[in-house]
Structures are given as structure tokens and as C-alpha cells.
């Protein structure tokens, strides 16, 4: 009996070891949230550590008691149906293990309330007193970013470093719910039709990536987002250059629209994917027909195309038509 119990304990220990091997294999191991690069993400991780201190304690306590009791009170040579002592309970113990969790949860809640302002309040920037604002629109299946001077980009955001950046997160009335999530830059916030939500980050220069976290349809898994944080001067230069290019029709916007809006369903070379093959289609080289289908969508026996570009400005539409004129998809 004893040896079989030992064998089982060994098996349990082996399981634990097996679990840790892949954990060690994967970078930071995934035992904690990704390395925070923004104060709110940092405070969230601090809360995570605080909670883990208690949950690990309770885990070790319960599992130890369980294993010790299993080992200590196993039957051994006692008759199978011999009764143990008739213990019906103990009021003091009941009070103890009611009060202890209450105390732990009180501590955790208190810690959360202390950290909360640092997580959810946008700090005011020192000199200007205002955070830099970017509007984030979640749409099937791309992220559209609008900067204060009218510059638009798709899926890849650029932002100034060391300034609080306040994001207004929305979804058009005709779209579905998405969720904005760049793990290193803080928690997620949903983009919900009819609701205006906000979140913020403040980071050092770097490249941070994430993706939509609320099931939003067929290409939910491909709805990626990235944030490139640049030194402030570099960012300002990029923004004004992009403004000029956007007016002139020479910016990267058309490229981003093709890759972010069209290609997720039709393939990067227009070869077709979850949607039909469009390489060689006459519509691509006809700006007016293209504008119509992108703005209004279409419904044919071959399938339905949603109005992926409803509400697009003329700049946005012409960026796409110009891009496709210059780079007709090859189809393979």
C-alpha cells in the first residue's frame, strides 16, 4: 500500500515537472503578464503579483493538507469499513476559515483600490497639460487610427514617446464589438457600437503588438494591431510628412488599406481566401466601381461583401484606388 501511494505521489510530481518544462521553454514562461512598458500595465502587473502571493499561499496550504491527509489517514491494515471518529464539526474552525478568506480578500481589494487611479486615470502631461489623443476605430477586421491633424493609418499606429497617449476607442454603429488590447501597454477596452470608451498608455520608444480580443467574425484571429512608439521629434516629423503625403495621395495609406482591409479576406495577392479571388477583376481598375463596392458592400449569389469602407473620406478611398492602379494584385 505504502509503495503504491509513493508511486502515485511520484506520478503527481512528474506531472508538475512536465508542466514546467514547456513553461521554461517559452520566453518569460508566461507565469506573469508580458513585461509592462506603460505605467498602467505596470500597476496591473503589480496587482497580479500581490494576488499571486496569496493564491500561491492558499494553493500550497490546501494541496499540502490534501496530500498529507491522503498519506497519513490511508487505510493501511485497518478493516475496510471500520469507521473513523464521529466528528461532526467545530464552530471555531468554521469561523476561522470564514474569517481568513475574508481578510485576504479585504487586503486584495484594498491593494486594487490603491493601484486603481494609476491604472485607469490618464495622467496629465507635464508641459502641455494635455494628453496626446488618437482615435481608434475597430472594424471588421481592421483597426483604423485617426490623428488630431486628420492623418489616418490602418493596423499600425505610431505614437510619441514619454507623453501620455489617450485613446478614444469606438466601433461604427453598423459594425460589431471589438476589443483593443496591446498587452505591454495596459489592459483591454472594448470597442462597442454606440459607446465611446477611452484608455491610455505612456511608453518608451519601441514596437508593441497585440490583437483584437473579442470574437468579431471570421477573421478575428487576423485582426492584429501594432503600436510603434517614437521619440517625440521623430513622431512630429513623421506626422506632418504623412499629412502632406496623404493630401498628395502618395502616403502608405493605400498600401495599409490593401493589406489591412482587403487582403485579410481576399489574400495579399488577391488570390482569394475566405472571400473570392479578386486578382484581375475589372472593378479593381475602375475607381468609381471600387469606391462604390468598398463604401456600400455588395450582395451577389457568390457571397456578401460587407461595407468595409463605409464612412471613409475621399482621401481614404482615393488612396486605395491609386494604390491598386499602381500595384494590381498578381493573383499568386
Amino acid at each position: 500500500m505504502a509503495s503504491s501511494v509513493r508511486a502515485k505521489l511520484l506520478l503527481a510530481a512528474t506531472t508538475l515537472a512536465l508542466l514546467l518544462v514547456p513553461a521554461a521553454y517559452g520566453g518569460n514562461g508566461g507565469f506573469v503578464p508580458v513585461t509592462p512598458e506603460s505605467p498602467n500595465a505596470h500597476d496591473i502587473r503589480a496587482s497580479y503579483f500581490f494576488i499571486t502571493f496569496f493564491t500561491l499561499g492558499v494553493f500550497v496550504l490546501v494541496e499540502t493538507l490534501l496530500v498529507v491527509f491522503i498519506f497519513r489517514f490511508r487505510r493501511r491494515r485497518r478493516p475496510r469499513f471500520q469507521d473513523g471518529p464521529t466528528l461532526h464539526g467545530a464552530t471555531r474552525l468554521e469561523l476561522l476559515w470564514t474569517a481568513l478568506p475574508v481578510a485576504i480578500l479585504f487586503l486584495i481589494a484594498t491593494f486594487i483600490f490603491i493601484e486603481l487611479p494609476g491604472i485607469s486615470h490618464v495622467p496629465s502631461a507635464g508641459a502641455t497639460g494635455r494628453a496626446y489623443q488618437i482615435k481608434v476605430t475597430g472594424r471588421q477586421f481592421y483597426w483604423q487610427f485617426e490623428y488630431p491633424n486628420g492623418v489616418i493609418s490602418i493596423d499600425s499606429m505610431r505614437a510619441p514617446a514619454e507623453v501620455p497617449v489617450k485613446l478614444t476607442v469606438v466601433s461604427p454603429d453598423t459594425d460589431v464589438i471589438h476589443s483593443w488590447w496591446i498587452p505591454a501597454l495596459g489592459g483591454k477596452i472594448d470597442a462597442i457600437p454606440g459607446i465611446v470608451n477611452t484608455t491610455w498608455f505612456e511608453a518608451k520608444p519601441g514596437f508593441y503588438s497585440g490583437q483584437c480580443a473579442e470574437l468579431c467574425g471570421l477573421e478575428h484571429a487576423r485582426m492584429l494591431a501594432s503600436v510603434e512608439v517614437m521619440p517625440k521629434s521623430e513622431f512630429t516629423a513623421w506626422l506632418s510628412q504623412r499629412r502632406a503625403q496623404q493630401s498628395a495621395g502618395t502616403s502608405d495609406l493605400g498600401d495599409e488599406e490593401w493589406g489591412g482591409v482587403c487582403a485579410k479576406c481576399h489574400g495579399l495577392a488577391g488570390e482569394g481566401g475566405i472571400a473570392v479571388r479578386i486578382a484581375g477583376s475589372a472593378i479593381l481598375s475602375d475607381p468609381r466601381a471600387l469606391a462604390k463596392i468598398v463604401r456600400n458592400g455588395t450582395s451577389t449569389p457568390r457571397g456578401t461583401m460587407p461595407a468595409v469602407g463605409s464612412g471613409w473620406t475621399d482621401d481614404q478611398v482615393s488612396a486605395l484606388t491609386t494604390y491598386l492602379k499602381e500595384h494590381p494584385p498578381s493573383g499568386s
Binding site: V62, I70, R80, P85, L87, A90
Partner: peptide, 20 residues
């Protein structure tokens, strides 16, 4: 809290038992 109460009572049920 009530979930913890259950877990600890189950553990205490094992205590001094004749486990098979």
C-alpha cells in the same frame, strides 16, 4: 468565502478518517 468554507470542510472530513 463560502467556496473556501466548503473546501476546508471537505479537507476536515478526510482528517482522521479511514481513507480507501
Amino acid at each position: 468565502v463560502p467556496t473556501g468554507v466548503k473546501v476546508f470542510n471537505w479537507l476536515a472530513t478526510l482528517w482522521r478518517g479511514n481513507l480507501h
